[in-house]
């Protein structure tokens, strides 16, 4: 097992290396005009000088080598456009905790509400709780997030007597953003858990357990839930990342200083070093999340194996 994990982690480094190199090369395919604020008012000498300062005049392998050399020293470089000459790490440092907190709270809330909802719906399949739950899921799926987020913000703040924008001094200011963000995940968890649980409930082992006389709730939680949860577990770490990236709407609406819209922002501004920094961060979280998801799956379902030890043809 440990050997498997260490092998996976080693491979993750390779993945990271490929991602970073591809991103690095992709970003350098953007037009050079994008690196200057007002390109047409600059002289040719200024442009050449700027390109030299950005290190863009060197051949691609050299640029890439320099990037990794600095990365090993822990130096992500300075922001070029987003905040000229400020270290990337200094820009990211205050934003990460905000996003992490928002994301974690939203996911926890989604799990706390979504899993029971899904279980309830599966247990009372075709009955009132199932219909109510379906109505909720359908509503969340149907109305674009961009619309219901705004709706929640406008009327929610009025109802709770809060300011329209986020105020870090008040804990109540967290309620609406976290709740809004978790809605999508609640629906997502409930929907898939219901689906998988319904799928499981037609399985032979469930029939057997029923014949054996296992009580309804015990059957639901000990047997069906556990088996249905397995395929969902793998996505848990990944949803966290998606939640953080997807918080762009919420962060822009409430003025929350997180990372949501940052990536879009810096790509559009062609701030290469910032893009690299953020992609590195996201990719690391993403890759680790994938390993974690796979591990959780192996651990929770004894029938699944990833190593080539057993069941090889």
């Amino acid at each position: 097992m440990l050997k498997y994990i260490s092998k996976r982690l080693l491979r993750s480094f390779l993945t990271l290396f490929i991602i970073m190199s591809i991103t690095f090369i992709l970003m350098r395919q953007m037009p050079i005009e994008g690196y200057f604020q007002n390109y047409d008012k600059l002289s040719e000498a200024q442009i050449q000088n700027g390109i030299r300062m950005l290190g863009l005049d060197k051949p691609m392998p050299v640029q890439l080598f320099n990037f990794y050399k600095n990365l090993l020293k822990g130096d992500l470089g300075m922001s070029l456009r987003y905040r000229n000459n400020v270290p990337v790490t200094e820009i990211l440092a205050p934003k990460i905790p905000v996003s992490v907190r928002l994301g974690v709270m939203a996911i926890l809330l989604a799990l706390i509400l979504g899993l029971p909802l899904g279980t309830l719906m599966a247990r009372y399949k075709g009955k009132l709780p199932d219909h109510l739950g379906t109505a909720f899921i359908v509503f969340i799926q149907a109305v674009p997030a961009a619309v219901y987020y705004l709706f929640l913000q406008l009327y929610g703040t009025e109802l709770l007597g809060l300011g329209l924008l986020f105020d870090p001094d008040k804990w109540t200011a967290w309620i609406l953003p976290v709740f809004s963000m978790s809605l999508g995940n609640i629906a997502y968890y409930a929907m898939w858990l219901r689906r998988f649980m319904v799928d499981q409930s037609t399985k032979d082992y469930v029939q057997l357990a029923k014949i054996k006389g296992v009580s309804g709730s015990k059957l639901m939680f000990r047997h069906i839930f556990r088996n249905a949860f397995v395929p969902m577990v793998q996505y848990l770490p990944a949803t966290f990342l998606n939640t953080v990236i997807g918080s762009i709407y919420i962060e822009s609406l409430y003025s929350i200083p997180g990372m949501g819209g940052l990536l879009v922002d810096v790509i559009k501004k062609q701030d290469n070093t910032m893009v690299q920094g953020i992609v590195l961060l996201f990719a690391t979280v993403g890759v680790i999340g994938l390993v974690l998801g796979d591990l959780l799956m192996v651990v929770l379902d004894p029938r699944i194996s990833f190593g080539a030890k057993r069941g090889n043809r």
Binding site: T15, I19, T23, L263, I267, F282, A283, V287, L290
Partner: peptide
């Protein structure tokens, strides 16, 4: 799996912007 790890982690926005360029 390697391809997935790579593709899934290259931000969609970069791809989108490049495609639109």
């Amino acid at each position: 799996t390697e391809l997935y790890n790579v593709m899934d982690n290259i931000p969609t926005t970069i791809v989108l912007i490049l495609v639109s360029y």
